[in-house]
Computed example of a mutant assay.
Amino acid sequence: MNNTVKDGWKPEPEPVYAAVFGCIMALGLPLNAVSLWILVRRHSLKSPNVVFMVNLAISDLLLVISLPTRVYFYATGTWPLSSAACIVTTVIFRKNITCSAIFITFICVDRLLAVVYPLRSRHLRTSSNAWKAVALVWLFLVVTNIQQSVTMSRDLKNCSVPVCFDYHHCWTPNISAAIYVKPVLVFIMLTVNVVCTTLVSWTLRSHLKDSARVSNKVNVMLIFVMNLVMFALCFFPLSIGLLTIKTTPIRPLVCLATMNCCLDPLFYYFSLDNFWKKKEDVDLAASEQ
């Protein structure tokens, strides 16, 4: 990376982005707080799907909590806090994209196993395995945060004025092999979601004997379609934009990616009840055979 300071640059207020992030915060905070409360109080954490959704809600809440500083920065063009505070809020913000994409993919795979292999996958689809997978995800994020925090701290020192979020103006980015890791990871998860959606759609049409008897196929397919919408709208554009950061306006893509914390409750949590009624009926019927 070529850390060339751009002399004379200083952040300016950008009320449009402040308003966008403010609206996302105002909508995302109550939606995710209520969703998390419903998941914990009304659904069993022994269900792997609920385990993934609870952690998805926690990830979204962490993102929402980091937004007030971003709103203040874009509203005033100033950063009154320390570099450490900037690093913490930025890391929380960035990791939500990766974290949400992983948990959404876990939900997609879990639904694939529940619909296509409801009996053979029972030993895999346990709360114990779900918590182990979740623990590995959070551990992976913590480890990667350490290296990124060190790099960000070094970059912030090149800024002649207190700044956060737009600190890339203080240096000339140099594309390295490491920057391709996140787009490749997102592309792999998108591919997994496409494959799962295709297999479930084909299974529901063909009525295979080993598949679950799901009466409301629309509700089932809605989960998979919304997964693809989330990747296409929120995750993939930003991942590609990071590769062309020199020429691509990145902040509109960041705004799109941030919207995932508002879409998650609408697309997943509020459709959970009907879906799990169908799943419980399938499990009950299978246990009686």
Rank of each mutant, 00 (worst) to 15 (best):
N3C: 14
T4K: 15
K10I: 09
K10L: 10
P11N: 05
P11F: 05
Y17E: 12
I24Q: 13
M25A: 08
M25K: 11
L29Y: 08
N32S: 00
A33F: 10
L36Q: 02
L39H: 01
L39S: 00
L45N: 11
P48G: 00
V51R: 13
I58S: 03
I65G: 00
L67A: 04
L67V: 02
Y74G: 01
A75G: 02
A75L: 02
G77N: 04
P80I: 12
P80V: 07
S82R: 09
V88Q: 10
T89C: 04
F93N: 13
I97L: 09
T98C: 04
T98K: 06
I102V: 12
I104F: 08
I104Y: 07
C108T: 08
D110F: 03
R111F: 13
L113H: 12
L113I: 04
V115L: 07
R120H: 12
L124K: 08
S128N: 13
A133V: 06
L139R: 03
F140A: 14
V143F: 13
V143Q: 08
N145P: 01
I146M: 06
L156V: 00
L156P: 00
P162C: 03
V163C: 03
C164F: 04
P183D: 09
V184F: 10
F187A: 11
F187V: 04
T191E: 11
V194Y: 09
C196V: 01
T198Y: 15
L199C: 03
L199R: 04
V200I: 07
V200D: 09
R205T: 08
R205L: 15
A212F: 05
V214N: 07
K217S: 05
N227P: 00
L228C: 03
L228P: 04
V229L: 14
M230Y: 12
A232H: 05
L238V: 07
S239E: 15
I240Y: 07
G241H: 04
L243N: 08
I245V: 10
I245M: 05
I245Y: 12
P249H: 07
C261W: 07
C262A: 03
L263G: 01
L263V: 06
F270T: 03
F270H: 13
N274Q: 14
K277M: 12
K278L: 15
V282T: 07
L284D: 11
A286K: 15
S287N: 10
Q289P: 10
